[in-house]
Design a protein around this nucleic acid. Structure first.
Lengths: 227, 227
DNA sequence: TTGTCCTATATGTACTACATATAACCAAAT
DNA sequence: ATTTGGTTATATGTAGTACATATAGGACAA
């Protein structure tokens, strides 16, 4: 028991490896030089010599930056700074099975927040064609088995995000989905608010933004009640 | 000009290096074995032999997983699976200067969506003490210079996120802040909606959740109008 | 401008070697 | 029985060498 109390006060010593340090140093270097995408970087051997470490270490650090999409390396040319895909790194880590429960809960709530905040973008950008498609999804739900419904649930909410015209947001949602599914499966209450998908489509067609916000809240209500 | 158009449609061929492949293979391995945090993994030399690559390559792959916090390596013991900090990877990449414009715009909107969706969590969790503190921040804004106001803007909205009791959300906001600041600085319209911080506090004290949502929309309105 | 050949060179990969921290084991001590 | 201390085997951390390979860039030709 006392050991756990200790752990809170005394964080374990984490000796940074050379690769850790070099990674930071290189990142600092990129920032300090205010390099822009496309600019080329020194070659590995030069970096190694300048930093006073083996090329091995430099490569480990670069391997990380490469994974994040910050730099690209090409034979003979050397390295060039690239525009990283900010969600790429995220995707690799977001496995419900290895995330701790507190974070899992946070992410669950994060999705609720996103979904509640969607309305403004939605009403600014929705088109008749979008709504038609959305309606088709909602209508296909009638008299279907549970498995189909889950698939449709994903399709419907996915379409909503898509309608915002915000690619990053949409990808973000796709990433968060497994977490959401995992958590709801855990709680395993068969949940559906007073307003279903068809209800939301109706509002989208005829109602105001405020109507939609209220509708979405009712739709997600079981989740909110569970907070 | 034509070259840039081409780049969008024809992504350059990216030959996967061994490290890329090994990274995926190890990740698959972790998943397939359904390992839980704390479980130990084979040692580097065994992995290298099993995969038929040099230890070097394995170390590059592991270096990436270590950076993401997925695994921890300890001398003699080998590696153990860890609970990754999902935002850690994010933080490294989220530099407004190296993110492309489209994504920058997406992230800007993402923050708007978050802020609009905050209300439900906020009303579920806010305490009197929170509101007091928030009010103090809002009141300290009177008759201050521009620099102070920017600092205060951050403090105020930060406090809102904090009040949700959602750590991940709060950290997320902290990360998004530089992007938001960068984009607004770019647009450089001195923006402030009809409702200011003190107005929001008033609603939080006496108004309903719906009032708050409308208030927040008005507060952020200049940004929405700019969509 | 387009196509072909050539070459220098930076990355990609493999292998060896050794330092170092430490988990695991055992023994002594309280 | 639990703690303390010393020893050792071992997996990681780092360095260094070597070589294969793709290719940027130049020269030249059509």
């Amino acid at each position: 028991m006392a050991i756990n109390d200790l752990k809170k006060d005394l964080a374990p010593i984490t000796s940074n490896t050379m690769a850790d340090i070099v990674e930071v140093r290189i990142r600092e270097y990129l920032k300090r030089m205010s390099l822009k995408p496309g600019d080329s970087l020194p070659k590995e051997t030069d970096l190694a010599e300048a930093l006073g470490v083996s090329r091995n270490v430099v490569r480990e650090a670069l391997s990380r930056l490469r994974m994040l999409g910050m730099v690209e390396t090409r034979k003979r040319k050397g390295m060039v700074l690239a525009s990283p895909d900010i969600l790429q790194a995220f995707e690799r880590v977001l496995d419900p099975l290895i995330i701790d429960d507190a974070t899992l809960k946070d992410i669950f709530e994060l999705r609720l927040v996103l979904e509640m905040g969607l309305a403004d973008l939605l009403y600014a950008r929705k088109t008749d064609k979008d709504i038609e498609e959305l309606e088709a999804i909602a209508n296909s739900e009638i008299d279907k088995d549970k498995f189909f419904l889950i698939k449709n649930e994903i399709a419907f909410h996915g379409k909503l995000y898509e309608m915002t015209g915000n690619t990053t947001l949409r990808r973000f949602q796709i990433m968060l989905m497994p977490v959401f599914a995992y958590v709801t499966a855990l709680v395993d209450k068969p949940k559906s608010g007073k307003i279903d998908h068809r209800g939301l489509v109706d509002i989208l067609k005829n109602g105001t933004k405020e109507n939609f916000k209220k509708g979405m809240y009712e739709h997600l209500r079981p989740h909110f009640d569970h907070l």
